[in-house]
């Protein structure tokens, strides 16, 4: 049976191969790094794709790279070592910054890039994504000792977001 660390290792391989410029684990799995574990069935990964801003965003090269290694894409997920992974190209400057400033955390000897709790909360509070569930997650992060309240306030102000 594969291990979670093996799935994480593939994310690093993807970056080393240049398929993505950088990545950071986001969503409920990122929350697990900073707060209590909550149930989820997929691993969200924010990615910065190579190329300039004139390039058309396509996940096709990433899916092809994964397919060559036996990781099939189905229903917008790629099954990597038993973990359904959803790759989300960064959609704005907040998401890009979240990847750029991600923390590198070690999981069973594998370094993994994880969106910091302040950025995670800010992403949950984006207007297009403010569902009750996401606001609840932002609230849970705000109670976490890992979150820097002043840094979050600054981010919310800078990106014109509010709780």
């Amino acid at each position: 049976m594969p291990s979670f660390a093996e799935a994480l290792r593939v994310l690093n391989d993807m970056k080393d191969a240049g398929v993505v410029e950088d990545y950071a684990v986001a969503g409920a799995m990122a929350m697990m790094f900073w707060a209590e574990p909550i149930p989820t069935y997929d691993l969200d990964v924010l990615v910065l794709l190579p190329g300039d801003d004139a390039a058309i965003v396509s996940l096709a090269p990433l899916y092809e790279w994964a397919a060559k290694r036996g990781y099939a894409a189905r229903a917008e997920h790629v099954l990597i070592e038993g973990v359904p992974v959803q790759f989300l190209p960064a959609h704005n400057s907040l998401a890009e910054e979240a990847v750029d400033r991600a923390a590198t955390v070690e999981y069973e000897g594998v370094p993994v890039r994880v969106v910091r709790p302040e950025y995670l909360a800010a992403l949950y509070l984006e207007p297009g994504a403010r569902t009750l569930k996401r606001r609840e997650r932002a609230a849970a992060l705000m109670e976490s000792t890992a979150l820097d309240r002043a840094a979050l306030e600054a981010l919310l102000n800078r990106f014109d977001l509010k709780f």
Partner: peptide, 28 residues
């Protein structure tokens, strides 16, 4: 998390159909 996935899946399935990928992960 893996334990939560196993516990929650039947409860979620009572409320809505599960997506293809919504399964407990077969990993360690």
């Amino acid at each position: 998390l893996l334990e939560l996935q196993r516990l929650c899946m039947p409860l979620i399935a009572r409320h809505r159909p599960l997506a293809e990928w919504e399964r407990p992960w077969e990993i360690t």
